[in-house]
């Protein structure tokens, strides 16, 4: 049997069908058979149709729902109600904390002119004047080949310290 016909039979009797629908039904069954099917299906549908659940079942379920709600859904913290003084104190604490907690500032390097005194060691040549006494030896123009009889003989420097001093002073 066509499911479409069954659908019609579940809701409408023969007279409620359109001519097109009736023609389609007649291709598969007679009018009496359709009407019989309709009545049978209506009887099946009506069976125990008056049965209703007890009224307290709904109340019980709603009660259970309320219990479940309390158990499984704890209040979220932002919906929790607190006393006014606690809210005020929290705000005050928040404001004060902004003073206490200073934010780290980035360091700015500023150029400064600094005067620094320092000691320099400088080596200085100091000229000192002194008087050096020198004996000027004057050589006379004389013929060297001329021998002076009984002339002074040569004297060793070791024997004449004043002469030696003359030499040494000149070196200094």
């Amino acid at each position: 049997m066509d499911m479409k016909i069954e659908d019609w039979a579940m809701k409408r009797d023969w007279t409620a069908l359109s001519h097109t629908e009736q023609r389609l039904v007649l291709t598969q069954m007679s009018q009496e058979e359709y009407q019989h099917l309709y009545q049978r299906l209506q009887g099946i549908k009506a069976l125990d149709a008056e049965v209703q659940p007890p009224a307290q079942l709904r109340a019980r379920l709603l009660e259970q729902l309320a219990v479940q709600e309390k158990m499984e859904r704890p209040k979220v913290w932002w919906k929790r109600q607190i006393p006014l003084w606690q809210a005020a104190a929290a705000i005050l604490l928040g404001v004060l904390s902004t003073f206490w907690i200073s934010k780290p500032q980035p360091k700015v390097v500023e150029p400064r002119v600094v005067q620094v005194r320092d000691t320099l060691l400088q080596e200085k040549l100091v000229w000192k004047e002194r008087i050096v006494q020198k004996t000027l030896v004057v050589y006379r123009d004389r013929d060297s080949l001329q021998v002076v009889p009984n002339g002074p003989k040569g004297v060793s420097l070791e024997d004449a310290p004043e002469l030696l001093g003359l030499f040494t002073q000149a070196e200094k």
Partner: peptide, 21 residues
Amino acid sequence: QQAFGVLYDRYGPRMYRYFYR
């Protein structure tokens, strides 16, 4: 919670009948 009440009103009797049958 009210949503459950509406759902029960729609399907409670029907499901009860189904179980009964």
